[in-house]
């Protein structure tokens, strides 16, 4: 069966439903607001301290260009990922409830192809959003600060992309399991909460996907890469693949 046809349809649907525009808009907004807030936050703080009255002193260090990346990544890691969950967790459950999944699957399309097309289209728009955000963030940081280069900056963006792909795969799994959009939405956030919570467990957190966020922060603080940083990376990729396989397995057994 022609998976390419379905993939093209899924992409077009993401454009028509404005999901792609929303994701791009949010990511580019964060990429612009990061350098801006890094530049002007100290001045705002100074202005605020002068209003506190005599004797009130707030010491704010002078902004540096790495702060722009830190602010951008902080927004992308939290609000950006929440937007991704919101946009992805309804993917399968919507098609099941609308009856469009049954419509497609009676055309001889395999359930695996159906699922893979959904994942691939979501990963593609996430990649575009990440690419646009990276470009805008680097360019705007350079315009504002006159500097932009950090060792391993590309790696920070890559790690964020891998973390985002992992979140997409988990959201798809949740969407396969859920029966309603509310269930999917709720379960998606529970999954995100659990992933974030596990990152606080000592020792174990060194090997989990949440560790990628810490590595990103280290890169942006120009610290050296931690030892064995590839282990959480490998585990995240493995968990992403397992999520896809599990989604596939469950979806194959589901009645529509």
């Amino acid at each position: 069966m022609n998976v390419k046809v379905l993939f093209r349809k899924d992409l077009k649907e993401l454009i028509v439903s404005k999901k792609m525009l929303i994701l791009l808009g949010v990511f580019v907004f964060f990429a612009l607001s990061g350098p801006l807030s890094a530049k002007f936050e100290p001045e705002l703080m100074k202005a605020y301290s002068s209003k506190l009255g005599p004797g009130s002193i707030i010491n704010v260090p002078a902004p540096v260009y790495t702060d722009a990346y830190k602010d951008t990544f902080n927004n992308l890691k939290q609000a950006g990922i929440i937007v991704v969950i919101l946009l992805v967790c309804s993917t399968i459950v919507d098609e099941k409830r609308n009856g469009t999944a049954a419509f497609l699957l009676t055309k001889g399309l395999s359930r695996s192809s159906f699922l893979l097309s959904k994942i691939a289209s979501r990963v593609l728009i996430f990649t575009l959003a990440c690419g646009a955000a990276s470009f805008v963030c680097i360019l705007y940081t350079f315009i504002i600060f006159g500097e932009f280069s950090i060792p391993n900056l590309y790696l920070a963006f890559l790690l964020y992309w891998i973390y985002g792909v992992f979140i997409i795969c988990v959201s798809i799994l949740v969407s396969v399991l859920a029966r309603t959009f509310t269930q999917a939405f709720f379960a998606g956030f529970v999954a995100y909460f659990v992933i974030s919570l596990l990152n606080m467990v000592p020792y174990l957190n060194r090997y989990l996907p949440g560790r990628l966020n810490t590595i990103m922060s280290d890169i942006l603080s120009e610290k050296t890469l931690p030892d064995h940083w590839t282990i959480p990376l490998g585990i995240t990729l493995l968990l992403s693949i397992l999520s896809v396989l599990l989604s596939q397995r469950i979806f194959k057994e589901q009645e529509l």
Binding site: G99, A102, T106, K107, G108, R111, E253
Partner: peptide, 21 residues
């Protein structure tokens, strides 16, 4: 189960739902 006879069977549900756009 899970495998349809691609071109031999055409199905129309009671309330057909297609892509509205």
């Amino acid at each position: 189960f899970g495998k349809t006879h691609d071109s031999r069977l055409g199905f129309v549900p009671d309330v057909p739902q297609y892509y509205k756009w």
